[in-house]
């Protein structure tokens, strides 16, 4: 399959800070491509450069064969964008939001009605077509945004943290829609996320940290690079247990937030039998699992991807919204 996104040496620096330090990647047509990394790793900056919102400081990006700097309008017509924050006009109805989008993208008049019906059906909002967006729940707004992003049949749909701030049930729904979409329209999806389970759905994942891609492959291959199994234990004295495990089994132990110690072994099921018998510190619980993408990230950087709390700027912005609505 041909490459629909081609990026080489893409960089963005601000006055005293390098947000993206040279990104190279290609995305094939019809692929779900995930951009995984902690907040502030440069995910949004990269997506903003790809979608022509900000100008790259260096390097090139091509989408659907068009250059992101010299052929901006052609790139814009080829992509759909769903941002972290809502970009709906909440004072207008769902229909008006979609109709405006049709006009912005120059969709032929005779096609508009049909397209709006179609996208509303995909996200199950047909019966709310005439409602003011303000009355929608967070999940419904997100779905409407996805619907709007599809109206002009983009070649590539960019989703910047599509499910951030949504409850698990709504998240699952949104993913249902996204997968439905991929099957139906064969659209290429480029998404950023810091949720591990979401990254698992992707065909390929690029792990980004401090503005650089540190690994790029299918989730399976990435996980097999970590290899073996992961053991998680909780004990009466974690500090002592950590020391003991590190000495006895010569493996690196990390402490996770919920008071668990995690470490990697080659053959988990065999290891576990002896481990429980031999271990001197009382064990509260023990768990064997396959490595996840989080372990991949940990393996590559020595850190975990954590869901960070809202930054001050986000909080201020939220407060502002409340005041004006």
């Amino acid at each position: 399959m041909p490459n629909i996104v081609e990026v080489s040496g893409l960089k963005k620096f601000y006055k005293n800070f390098e947000a993206v330090k040279g990104v190279d990647l290609t995305v094939k047509e019809g692929e779900i491509f995930g951009f995984l990394g902690p907040n502030g790793a440069g995910k949004s900056t990269t997506i903003n450069m790809l979608s022509t919102i900000i100008k790259p400081s260096d390097g090139t990006a091509k989408i659907n064969g068009y250059d992101n700097v010299t052929e901006k309008n052609k790139v814009r017509a080829s992509i759909g964008l769903i941002f972290q924050e809502s970009t709906l006009d909440e004072k207008l109805t769902a229909n008006e939001n979609l109709m405006l989008h049709c006009k912005f993208y120059g969709i032929d008049k005779s096609l508009r009605e049909e397209r709006i019906q179609e996208v509303l059906e995909i996200v199950d909002l047909t019966d709310r077509r005439k409602s003011i967006v303000e009355t929608f729940s967070g999940g419904m707004k997100r779905r409407l945004e996805i619907a709007r992003g599809l109206l002009h049949y983009p070649k590539v749909l960019f989703l910047d943290e599509p499910t951030v701030g949504l409850d698990p049930q709504t998240r699952a729904h949104i993913w249902e829609y996204i997968l439905k979409l991929k099957k139906k329209a064969g659209i290429t999806i480029f998404l950023t996320t810091h949720y591990m389970d979401e990254a698992e759905i992707c065909d390929r994942v690029a792990v980004i940290d401090h503005g650089k891609i540190i690994a790029l492959d299918t989730p399976e291959i990435l996980k097999s690079q970590v290899g073996g199994d992961m053991i998680e234990v909780s004990t009466g004295d974690n500090a002592a247990a950590k020391k003991l495990i590190e000495e006895r089994y010569e493996t690196e132990v990390t402490e996770s937030e919920n008071n668990h110690l995690a470490f990697r072994v080659d053959n988990g099921s065999e290891f576990l039998v002896d481990f429980v018998k031999e271990f001197d510190i009382p064990i509260k619980s023990v768990n064997l699992r396959r490595p996840t993408l989080n372990d991949v990230f940990l393996h590559l950087t020595g850190r975990e991807i954590r869901e960070e709390t809202l930054s001050k700027k986000d909080l201020a912005r939220k407060g502002m919204r409340r005041r004006f609505h």
Binding site: I53, I79, T87, L88, D89, E90, H101, F104, F324
Partner: peptide
């Protein structure tokens, strides 16, 4: 200015309208 604050400006700016 409000469109910038509430995000709608991005919807307009990323569309192909000049």
């Amino acid at each position: 200015v409000q469109d910038k604050e509430f995000g709608y400006m991005r919807e307009i700016l990323v569309s192909p309208i000049s």
